[in-house]
Amino acid sequence: MSAINTRLEAVNQQIQHAIKKYHRDADSVSLLAVSKTRPAEEIALAVTAGQHRFGESYIQEALIKIDQLKALQIEWHFIGRIQGNKTRSIAENFDWVHSIDSVKQIKRLNEQRPKALPPLNICLQIKIDDEESKAGLSPEQAKCIIDEMAHYPRLLLRGFMTLPAPAENLEEQRQPFKTLRLLRDQLATEAMPLETLSMGMSDDLEAAIAEGSTLVRIGTAIFGPRNYPAK
């Protein structure tokens, strides 16, 4: 058994423990393995271990891996900042985008999504706190976008994503996730249930699941420490 297989099993056990602790349905939380900076060989090992959802943040790196692993059954999620000149590559090669934070991005992705592919699944990134460095939409901006989604048939709005500021303890970690869940409950409709809450990483996984996360984004706990390329 590979180290990735062992760590992946441990993460899934951690998720299941939190699901039971907070009385969530057994299949209500999915794992997104964050594979940015990791080689295609490691992703292939994770696929062999049963993982099929992977998150990438750097488009040029991701495109190489998507091509190398095209024979495998993989659902690709883009979770990084969206640059204006990269939207076509995202629209053409990914199944999900988590980091939508402007109407301009939505318009470009809708126009550039190939008609031969199913609609692109998207999550709106919501800014819950006041961190200046964080991207994201305000709740008011999110509502306006939801009201306009009928104009973008090549996109399918699945829910919200957030990246909260670090917190000291479990109760503090839960607060921004609770805020996002309540916003989702307020804005969801029968036609647009916004069933996806993309929230929670290695350090706040339990808090996110306690507050309704349906998709947790875990990288280092699966693949080990990252070696970022020198700038």
Rank of each mutant, 00 (worst) to 15 (best):
Q112V: 08
S213N: 10
A40I: 06
G55K: 09
A210K: 10
G159T: 02
K231V: 15
L194W: 01
E168R: 09
D204E: 03
K127I: 01
N169A: 05
P176T: 07
T189A: 03
Y58R: 05
D67S: 15
R7H: 04
R53S: 06
I100F: 09
L183R: 02
E56W: 02
V97T: 05
D129W: 00
E140H: 09
L69V: 07
Q13V: 06
M1F: 14
T37Y: 03
L157H: 02
N227C: 06
L205Q: 04
A40H: 10
K134R: 11
F54E: 02
I222W: 00
A135L: 10
T189N: 01
I79N: 06
I122D: 02
I126A: 11
K21W: 02
E75V: 11
K70T: 14
D185Y: 01
Q51W: 07
S99I: 11
D130P: 02
L187Y: 05
I145G: 06
V29T: 11
A18M: 06
A150P: 08
P153A: 01
V47M: 08
R88G: 10
L194F: 04
V29G: 12
K143C: 13
A188Y: 03
T37E: 06
V34E: 07
A10H: 11
L63S: 06
M199L: 00
D147Q: 12
A71R: 15
A210C: 13
Q83R: 08
H23M: 12
F160V: 01
E61K: 04
A207F: 05
H77A: 13
E41F: 08
G159K: 02
I59R: 09
R108E: 15
L124S: 09
A150V: 14
